[in-house]
Write a protein that binds this DNA or RNA. Structure first.
Length: 598
RNA sequence: GGCCCGGUAGUACAGAUGGUUAGUACGCCAGCCUGUCACGCUGGAGGUCGAGGGUUCGAGUCCCUUCCGGGUCGCCA
């Protein structure tokens, strides 16, 4: 039978009981993590978010009644235990436990709440993810999730302190806003007052934070929830958190980048005791693409992509020749000592893998223990292989993996993905390594085949590089942006830009994007208006808070750092949201439900 | 929308080529046990093999359809 707490006070958390409390009486409260009933002697391990302590029920000290009560306790019961802290001696010390040098000799036991057998064991890892999500409150009892959520909270505190110390003001911006046609799909909220009209949940506070700069807030930040109705991934949830910041009277990327470096250094130092470089590597977008096939390269390992265009320009191998004659390219990566690690079967699998990145296939050329193995040796002369070997500086044992495509971007992206896959497979980096990078000099525009025009790569308020301003209309593809992404271990942790604050530049930008005055007014109306009344030079950045926590907690699954995440189909296993609503609610909103949908 | 992987007691998993009563560990239930620490020992209960259809004398296993979960490409200014 469960008992009342009746004003009893906890004196310590379970994980806080140390030898300094020896001889003192303490009151612990928590969940029964394990029970070891030896008959006349019972050990209970009591758990709360701080850790685990062992309580012992011993008839040498406690009554027979108390021992019998303790024998009825099951796992996950919530209990309070009053007892004296005793030093464990000899073999009774458990060196694997933080509190292994002490135990609490129980004098009183209250069963505060009984518990059914849980659907999965709290002490183990490995239960099916869907099951853990259905009983998320039980999953949160697990040590890993407790740790991740605590780290998340600590990082949040560090961020608030740092930005506050640097003169930033925290301002909240609306959740109910206006849908913007650009970018990701919006989550919509129907208006009751104006039937047929909808609010949109923010994809980011971008517009509001720029308006705050116009409003003279000077430096703003917000830990902001954002919503995007797009498909989920291992590192993508439909609602997620951004550390959003913006500052006025700056026009160099460095101003925001250095502030961000300071913040990240502080976080890594305090959370992981890791000293990040005070200045991160900077690499242009075009170099990232060419060398790593990604705009968010993982620099924990090498294996840079190399260009074989000149080396194979006279090749007889049709695949290479076709790519080159179509204006394409032939690129390669070299896996050191990989020739004998990659079987024919595995190479075929890798070929299938690169095909998902829109390239035709994968060629390989390795110098294995049993001699040369090459997927295209029949098509080329010995001398060509020698030239490739020389160009790629291949040693005995190495294997090169080669992709040819008429589109250079497809080729490098495929190799970039392959590079990461091989690094993971052969453990070319170790956990605890952190490679930080700024990707800079993004193109301002990107040509959209779908729309048949240039579109903004970041957004249409991104400031062009000053030196590229003259080419915005004459040669848009060469114009670079004052935009920057911060990348850690191949994860895009954040990004931002300097914003346009000059009316002429903004006008040119819209012209380059092919917007008419009507389109500008319709899409960006109030926002463009605001810029007419005195806009300070400004710029900012948003950090993907969840992803930052992922890096700091060594997980690749965003669900591990969010208390109540959604599943891949964007539903919640626990609450079963989204769900049908009452007819009455729909009627109020004047939303008609078509009979026989689907 | 495409591709890949998975679904077998409460949980995690094993079940070559189709063949007796579908196993193992943990958990659960009952009993024993005074120094355990993943306590141990004895016994017990527990299964729509995701669902439906098919092939077969016989299907967890083979075929088809479908549902569910995960990953990924597209998508995410």
């Amino acid at each position: 039978m469960a008992e009342l707490l009746n004003g009893q006070k906890r004196t310590l958390m379970c994980g806080e009981v140390t030898t300094e409390y020896v001889g003192k009486t303490v009151t612990l409260m928590g969940w029964v993590h394990r029970r070891r009933d030896l008959g006349g002697l019972i050990f209970l391990q009591l758990r709360d978010r701080s850790g685990i302590s062992q309580a012992v029920f011993d008839t040498d000290v406690c009554s027979r009644e108390l021992l019998e009560k303790a024998s009825t306790i099951k796992l996950e019961y919530v209990v309070s235990i009053v007892g004296k802290v005793r030093r464990r001696i000899g073999n009774n010390v458990n060196p694997n436990m933080k509190t292994g040098e002490i135990e609490v000799v129980a004098e009183e036991l209250k069963i505060l709440s009984e518990a059914d057998t849980t659907p999965f064991s709290i002490g183990d890892d490995g239960a099916n993810e869907a099951l853990r999500l259905k009983y998320r409150y039980l999953d949160i009892r697990r040590e890993q999730l407790q740790h991740n959520l605590i780290v998340r909270s600590k990082i949040c505190q560090i961020i608030r302190n740092y930005l506050s110390d640097n003169g930033f003001i925290e301002v909240e911006t609306p959740m109910l806003g206006k849908s913007t046609p650009e970018g990701a799909r919006d989550y919509l909220v129907p208006s009751r007052i104006r039937p047929g009209s909808f609010y949109a949940l923010p994809q980011s506070p971008q517009i509001y934070k720029q308006l705050l700069m116009i409003g003279g807030m000077d430096k703003y930040y917000q830990i902001a929830r954002c919503f995007r109705d797009e498909d989920l991934r291992a590192n993508r949830q439909p609602e997620f958190t951004q550390v959003d910041l913006e500052m006025s009277f700056v026009d160099r990327e460095e101003d925001v980048m250095q502030l961000t470096e300071g913040l990240l250094c502080k976080i890594f130092k305090e959370i992981r005791n890791v000293d990040l470089p005070t200045r991160f590597t900077r690499m242009s977008w075009i170099d990232c693409m060419n060398l790593y096939g990604s705009d968010k390269p993982d620099l924990r390992f090498g294996m840079q992509i190399q260009n074989l265009d000149d080396t194979v320009k006279n090749t007889k191998f049709a695949v290479f020749q076709n790519a080159l004659s179509a204006g394409g390219t032939v690129r390669a990566i070299v896996l050191k000592n990989g020739a004998d690690k990659l079987s024919r079967k595995e190479l075929d699998k890798l070929a299938e893998f690169v095909k998902t990145y829109k390239v035709g296939g994968l060629a390989w050329y390795g110098l294995g223990a049993d001699g040369v193995k090459c997927s295209f040796s029949k098509a080329v002369d010995e001398s060509e292989l020698e030239e490739i070997k020389t160009k790629l500086e291949m040693q005995h044992g190495d294997i090169s993996l080669i992709v040819a495509d008429k589109n250079w971007k497809n080729a490098v992206v495929a190799l970039g993905a392959l590079r990461c896959r091989l690094a993971a497979k052969f453990e070319l980096y170790k956990s605890g390594d952190f490679a930080c990078l700024w990707v800079v000099d993004f193109p301002l525009f990107e040509y959209s085949e779908e729309e048949g025009r240039f579109v903004a790569m970041h957004h249409p308020f991104t400031h062009p590089k000053n030196e590229d301003l003259p080419f915005m209309l004459s040669d848009p593809s060469r114009v670079r942006a004052k935009a920057y992404d911060v990348v850690i271990n191949g994860d895009e942790i954040g990004g931002g830009s300097m914003r346009i604050y000059n009316r002429e530049v903004q006008k040119t930008m819209f012209e380059a994007l092919g917007f008419t005055d009507e389109q500008i007014a319709e899409r960006f109306g109030f926002f463009v208006d605001a810029f007419k009344y005195g806009t300070p030079p400004h710029g900012g950045l948003a950090l993907g808070f969840d992803r930052l926590v992922m890096v700091l907690t060594d997980t690749t699954n965003i669900k591990d750092v969010i208390a109540f995440p959604k599943m891949q189909n964007a539903s919640c296993m626990m609450t079963e949201a989204p769900a049908q609503v009452d007819e009455k609610q729909l009627t109020e909103l004047r939303i008609k439900c078509e009979a026989g949908d689907d």
